[in-house]
Nucleic acid binder design. Structure first.
Lengths: 198, 198
DNA sequence: CAAAAAGTAAACTGTACAGTGTAGTTTACT
DNA sequence: AGTAAACTACACTGTACAGTTTACTTTTTG
């Protein structure tokens, strides 16, 4: 592997660690260079400036965060399937790297408006839940003319408890039995409204 | 009014404006002093350092953000009452000062961990929704053994659509007809699960 | 193997800003 | 009027950090 590429990778890796553990502002380019075992000038040879480096790191981070798609299965219970999806989602949303990345990005998007859009535009959407709901609706198992709203309801109910409190650093996501209980009740409410019983 | 108190007020007002419009880091103490028409030294005579000034501003901000309490009324429709509560809540959550204050605080809490708790400890809780739900449950109109969870469900469903997207600057809160539609559907789902029909 | 490309260390520039020190002035109270 | 507290202007210290320059070395490539 070319030396130049090795250095580039080292810089990205170092920047990722630094940004995630300390945030954008508190990370200096000197730090990144030292951590990457690279001269500062080399950092600037690969990335025009600090912001460009941050963008590159962010794109890499976002690309990682994907849930396993859960395929709609006409013969299994809706409740069980949604539970599986929910657990998947919670796992990703509460994972250390995801939370750290989201926070770092959030702070930056406050100070550099437009950066979020820039990064988002480079990342494909994750539509696995929406696809599942659409499939279930088509199969006649769900009664929701507005799949977008149903998707929103579902995500919202999960994120409100497992994601946002963690992001803002106010409390932690419920675990174990409590998590299970919340998810079951929530899915019961969701299906109470959306499942096609009649 | 004592001059000293006037100056203090002017400093707080200036700092509030500056912090809300630019955030903590991008606001310099020189700016605050100039905006308050006060010498920099005076700022430091009133507030030990920048962080102390920020805390003082934040406490003031948080104390403002209150929804009007909606009293549970046994004879009115649950749906109507919840709709009223929801509209109240959305109005506060999407108001410019609330959003700006929340953002500023959020960023700071990332960089100065513990500051959120410090500020929160000086602000009384807003329990009006929880009180309403508890009253309705006692009255036998709602069937929810776990009022805390029901409160969470309700807030979560509102914030997920009207608050968090605005905070992270990704999209805006629905307005007018769309807002009404979302709130009605959401309350229908909520009541479908929690209202005591049997 | 020689030129071009990329890397290195270290000193340097320029700027921004928190916080302090000082000497002199204004205000409030007796 | 006299005094203490609070205010002012402004220069100053110290630090942090983005980004550049320089003179030199190593790696890649034709």
């Amino acid at each position: 592997m070319k030396l130049s590429t090795q250095k580039r990778t080292a810089i990205l890796q170092a920047a990722k660690e630094a940004f995630l553990s300390q945030g954008f502002r508190s990370t200096s380019m000197d730090q990144v260079a030292e951590l990457a075992q690279v001269s500062k000038r080399t950092v600037y040879n690969h990335f025009e400036n600090k912001e460009a480096l941050f963008r590159a790191v962010s794109v890499g981070l976002c690309a990682q965060a994907k849930t396993l798609p859960v395929i709609y299965c006409p013969h299994a219970s809706l409740h069980e399937q949604l539970l599986e999806i929910a657990h998947q989602e919670v796992k990703v949303l509460t994972s250390k790297p995801y939370v750290a990345a989201f926070r770092a990005l959030l702070v930056e998007s406050f100070e550099l408006p437009g950066i979020a859009e820039q990064i988002a535009s480079e990342i494909p959407d994750d539509d696995s839940l929406k696809d599942w709901i659409t499939a279930a609706a088509k199969d006649g198992q769900l009664n929701c003319p507005d799949t977008k709203q149903a998707t929103t309801h579902f995500y919202t109910l999960i994120k409100g408890v497992f994601f946002w409190p963690v992001i803002i650093g106010f409390g932690t996501a419920p675990k174990g039995k409590e998590r299970q209980r919340y998810l079951e009740n929530t899915i019961a409410m969701f299906l109470g409204y959306y499942s096609a019983k009649d």
